[in-house]
């Protein structure tokens, strides 16, 4: 019974049962975000800052290394990383070496080759990471990782629980979509900012696969952007049948000037992917609900959810 209960409570990637460590908890950002996480209900069990072991921050013990933290308090599920960008690679690989299976890498400006190295180690360890350059993720009423909402009071106020998943490439838009949906009466299962950089650990397609497997999620709102091929890959997933839940998609950057492409190579491997028109076209053909006006997202989502319950 207990197993059933936990499973029922489980949302994608995070809930209140997961044990979380904060790397860089003694810094300005780390401390502020740890406060948000704890006050919202996340189980923060420890912090880690080299040289600050033995201190206590917000009632949480601080360790010098993650190995020591895990030895002392037992295995940790998730690490949220708030160290300066040049130190992120080492911090992330330290967490992966300590057996932590999910990282949330908040800082931006992490060098791309560092991200590639983190990705290679994560793959070897069977681990995953969200970010870098992410606001994090939140499951309403359960837990938050990162900094979505800013304060626990706002986060509680703005995001209501329910059955719609959100995944976004823009941090600010993650919050705004989630807020507008909640205000329109559409509750949320989870909201995820996949990260704003070119290479991220869990891009849209991976997050959407998780929503597909999540019994709580009935539909997914995706905020895509021009560049890269995450949105086209989502279209591929819909066409192949790997994703069956309805996807409501908005693509930002219609007005952006073309010619931002910086190499032939990018054009060769993307093969026409990456443009606003291309993304909209692919998603429409695959059967996603593409919304042209940002403000229409809540109404369209409502309609899609209503038609689902009609069918059931």
């Amino acid at each position: 019974m207990d197993i059933l209960r936990t499973r029922k409570l489980m949302s994608i990637l995070i809930d209140q049962t997961k044990k979380v460590i904060v790397q860089g908890i003694t810094g300005r950002e780390g401390m502020a975000r740890a406060k948000l996480m704890i006050e919202y209900g996340t189980t923060v069990v420890a912090g880690c800052t080299p040289g600050k072991g033995g201190e206590t921050v917000l009632g949480v013990p601080v360790f010098d290394t993650l190995e020591e933290a895990v030895e002392t308090i037992g295995q940790v599920d998730i690490s949220t990383i708030f160290v300066p960008a040049p130190l992120v690679k080492d911090a992330a690989i330290e967490a992966l070496s300590a057996g932590i299976k999910l990282l949330v890498i908040v800082p931006d400006r992490v060098p791309i080759y560092d991200v590639l190295e983190i990705a290679a180690v994560a793959k070897e360890m069977g681990a995953e990471f969200v970010g870098p350059n992410t606001l994090g993720l939140l499951s309403p009423g359960k837990a938050v990782l990162g900094m979505i909402g800013g304060s626990a009071a706002s986060a509680r106020n703005w995001f209501l629980p329910g059955n719609c998943g959100v995944t976004s490439r823009s941090g600010g838009i993650t919050s705004s979509i989630a807020y507008y949906l909640s205000r329109a009466g559409v509750g949320l299962s989870s909201i995820v900012h996949v990260g704003g950089d070119a290479v991220v650990g869990l891009p849209h397609p991976e997050i959407i696969k998780k929503y597909e497997a999540d019994p709580e999620t009935k539909a997914v709102v995706m905020f895509g952007e021009i560049g890269g091929s995450q949105e086209e890959t989502v279209a591929d997933l819909i066409e192949s049948g790997a994703v069956t839940k309805p996807i409501i998609a908005y693509i930002g950057g219609r007005g952006a000037k073309s010619g931002t492409r910086f190499s032939h190579a990018g054009a060769i491997i993307e093969g026409g992917r990456g443009t606003y028109e291309g993304k909209v076209e692919r998603l429409k053909t695959a059967g996603a609900h593409v919304v042209e006006n940002f403000g229409d997202i809540p109404a369209v989502t409502k309609k899609v959810l209503a038609s689902l319950s009609g069918k059931m």
Binding site: G172, I173, G252
Partner: peptide, 9 residues
Amino acid sequence: GGGGSMMSM
């Protein structure tokens, strides 16, 4: 923020 800026533009 990039996404919101793009939409606003």
